[in-house]
């Protein structure tokens, strides 16, 4: 996993500060506390993770302690405090996907790509989140959401392997539901 101490790129906080100034304007202390999670979600949307600089900016903007911000960042499963890989895989591990075989996909990613939950593959290409909930597209089970907009559905280990190859090449997987595959 990439270490944040080795990270040489600087985080440009301008877009985050802009969003905070425009949309996160608490009228009182209570609302400031209520807005922490939302602000962290905005940061993650912008950077793909929540860098320490961004967490500090959020704490400063809302007038809360950095402890409070990290308390939430480490509690919720959605947040990343380490930089992600190039592509983001959101693997649904809801009951429907389990019944249709998502465990085999998790095994394949672990054994063939050294990719575990919340981890980054050694080549830095892939990040995996195993979602302990339901993505709500059960007709496509077992399903992976890729880079927040595309879906790979009705996956088998073979189809997943092919899809990852295509993703690394920069191609798109044509048949989301696997009917033609």
């Amino acid at each position: 996993m990439a270490n944040r101490i080795d990270r040489d790129e600087k985080i440009d906080l301008t877009p985050l500060l802009e969003v905070l100034a425009n949309r996160f304007r608490p009228r009182d202390d209570q609302e400031a506390y209520e807005l922490i999670v939302g602000a962290c979600q905005e940061a993650q949307r912008l950077y793909g993770w929540v860098p320490p600089e961004a967490a500090q900016a959020i704490a400063d903007h809302l007038g809360v302690t950095i402890n409070r911000v990290y308390g939430l960042l480490t509690f919720y499963a959605d947040f990343r405090t380490e930089p992600p890989g190039k592509h983001f895989l959101w693997l649904c591990h809801g009951a429907a996907c389990y019944v249709m075989g998502s465990s085999r996909l998790i095994e394949l990613l672990r054994d063939r790509h050294q990719l575990v939950d919340h981890g980054v593959s050694p080549d830095g290409e892939l990040t995996l989140h195993v979602f302990n909930g339901c993505l709500g597209v059960c007709d496509l089970a077992p399903v992976i959401q890729v880079d927040h907009h595309e879906y790979w559905g009705r996956l088998t280990p073979e189809r997943l392997e092919a899809a990852i190859e295509a993703l690394k090449r920069g191609d798109r997987l044509e048949d989301a539901d696997g009917t033609a595959g």
């Binding site: 209520e34 807005l35 962290c40 308390g71 939430l72 509690f75 919720y76 499963a77 909930g133």
Partner: peptide, 26 residues
């Protein structure tokens, strides 16, 4: 007001949900 969760199942429990809204760990 609309508030969003961060992916913790426990936040569906009543008292945990309220702590989550209040910006504490749910």
């Amino acid at each position: 007001r609309v508030r969003t969760g961060g992916g913790a199942y426990i936040c569906g429990e009543g008292s945990a949900l309220m702590y989550a809204i209040m910006g504490q760990r749910g």
